[in-house]
Simulated scan of single mutants.
Amino acid sequence: MLAGMAVDEAVAAQPRRRRGPGPRFGLILVAVLALLFGVPWATLFWSGNAWPAPAVIAGTLVFVLAAAAFPVLMFRGHGRHDDRCARIADTTLGVLWVLFVWSLLGQAAGAVLALAGVADPVRSRLVTASVVVVSLVLLVWGHVEAMRVSRVRRVDVTLPRLGRGLDGLRVVLITDTHYGPIDRSRWSRGVVEVVNSLRPDIVAHTGDIADGEVPQRIAQASPLGDVRAELARVYVTGNHEYMSGAQGWVEYMSSLGWEALHNRHLVVSRGGDSLVVAGVDDRTAAGSGVPGHHADHEAALAGADPDLPVLLLAHQPQQISGAVAHGIDLQLSGHTHGGQMWPFHYLVRIDQPVLQGLSRHSERTQLYTSRGTGFWGPPFRIFAPSEITLLTLRSAS
């Protein structure tokens, strides 16, 4: 079985030819944008509100212009790394998502009001007012949640194979910092201060450091060089590194004194007992075209004592199947952001086996999935708070 997986991983390591988006993708994009813009527009301006004609015309023009500008801003912002355009596009996307979700819920509430005998335009105006108020509250609160320094989440994890000398080992996990178009240098320094205050033995970063190349984000990323750990600072790539110069980030983290676990491992010891700390590239690495990058569990564990417990860093929870096949004791992952903006987590669960927290996947293998320390894109976190995770490892004895 392991030999078969090795062959699969070797095949996956070959760069895949990238194809441009076809007509189907274009149709899907148009349909998504029509829904994201159309549902809020209908709720706010069209459905039974009986607003004066100038208000309807003005509101419609705003939505039409925003819908036309949005793809251009998104392309320039994330395709050509124009931070100003990216900030506008990302914020627009977040506002649209919240308005879309609560417009749908508002229309459902409107149906209930209709059954109760409440007629238009009172019914539709009540729905519109509710959608606007709830959306504004959630967006303000969600922005504050996204921009604040993450809270500490404390989790105890028992590893039966962990030696008594390593009982109480403190592992601090940060992930998905996503340094990006919004300058969060101060936030980055705050995260480092919290991490250091936890007196970690090991600090792990499981990828998606930034959206952008190293020179673009160096001011935000450089505080990571001040992270202190008794035994090790370790890092693996996430999927966003493969859109932002992955090898550059591997080299930069190494220059800051972090161990870049690019399909490799190290061994930490305390009290006469040892732990293998391994890492694999993100599962998108093989198709990225970056030479030498692909998830390779066998290379990561080559030469490791099979009797020692293994802590594995892998960006995506979906990589847990490889961890189970290779007898990993605990995998640390991020990627999901806990959904970031409710109810997006339902879509995340289609792609990932776990949304957040500690889960078991075999008699030996456990997985801890962080909700992420930063945020991607829209500067909002709604019902999905960020976290800096303190995992205390416990031996069964």
Results as ranks from 00 to 15, higher is better:
residue 17 R to P: 03
residue 17 R to M: 10
residue 17 R to V: 14
residue 17 R to G: 14
residue 17 R to F: 10
residue 18 R to S: 07
residue 19 R to P: 00
residue 19 R to L: 08
residue 20 G to Q: 08
residue 20 G to F: 07
residue 20 G to C: 00
residue 20 G to Y: 06
residue 20 G to E: 09
residue 20 G to R: 14
residue 20 G to L: 12
residue 21 P to C: 01
residue 21 P to N: 11
residue 21 P to Q: 10
residue 22 G to E: 03
residue 23 P to L: 08
residue 24 R to C: 08
residue 25 F to G: 00
residue 25 F to T: 13
residue 25 F to D: 08
residue 26 G to T: 05
residue 26 G to Q: 13
residue 26 G to E: 12
residue 26 G to Y: 11
residue 26 G to P: 04
residue 27 L to G: 15
residue 27 L to Q: 11
residue 27 L to N: 05
residue 27 L to A: 15
residue 27 L to S: 09
residue 27 L to P: 04
residue 28 I to N: 05
residue 28 I to A: 15
residue 28 I to G: 07
residue 28 I to R: 14
residue 29 L to P: 01
residue 29 L to I: 06
residue 29 L to S: 14
residue 30 V to A: 15
residue 30 V to H: 10
residue 30 V to M: 14
residue 30 V to F: 15
residue 31 A to R: 07
residue 31 A to G: 14
residue 31 A to D: 06
residue 31 A to Q: 06
residue 31 A to T: 14
residue 32 V to K: 04
residue 32 V to W: 04
residue 32 V to S: 05
residue 33 L to H: 09
residue 33 L to Y: 06
residue 33 L to Q: 09
residue 33 L to D: 02
residue 33 L to K: 04
residue 34 A to L: 14
residue 35 L to W: 10
residue 35 L to S: 11
residue 35 L to V: 15
residue 35 L to K: 07
residue 36 L to E: 06
residue 36 L to W: 09
residue 37 F to V: 04
residue 38 G to R: 05
residue 38 G to Q: 03
residue 38 G to K: 07
residue 38 G to S: 06
residue 38 G to A: 06
residue 39 V to M: 10
residue 39 V to D: 10
residue 39 V to P: 10
residue 39 V to N: 10
residue 39 V to Y: 12
residue 40 P to S: 06
residue 40 P to G: 05
residue 40 P to W: 02
residue 41 W to F: 11
residue 41 W to Y: 12
residue 41 W to S: 02
residue 41 W to C: 03
residue 41 W to Q: 05
residue 41 W to P: 01
residue 42 A to Y: 13
residue 42 A to R: 09
residue 42 A to C: 10
residue 42 A to W: 13
residue 42 A to M: 12
residue 42 A to N: 05
residue 43 T to I: 05
residue 43 T to D: 11
residue 43 T to Y: 07
residue 44 L to Y: 13
residue 44 L to R: 07
residue 45 F to L: 13
residue 45 F to P: 01
residue 45 F to E: 07
residue 45 F to D: 02
residue 45 F to S: 07
residue 47 S to A: 12
residue 48 G to V: 02
residue 48 G to A: 04
residue 48 G to L: 03
residue 48 G to H: 03
residue 48 G to D: 07
residue 48 G to Y: 03
residue 49 N to H: 09
residue 49 N to Y: 00
residue 50 A to R: 13
residue 50 A to C: 00
residue 51 W to C: 00
residue 51 W to D: 03
residue 51 W to Y: 09
residue 52 P to I: 01
residue 52 P to T: 03
residue 52 P to K: 02
residue 53 A to Y: 02
residue 53 A to S: 05
residue 53 A to T: 09
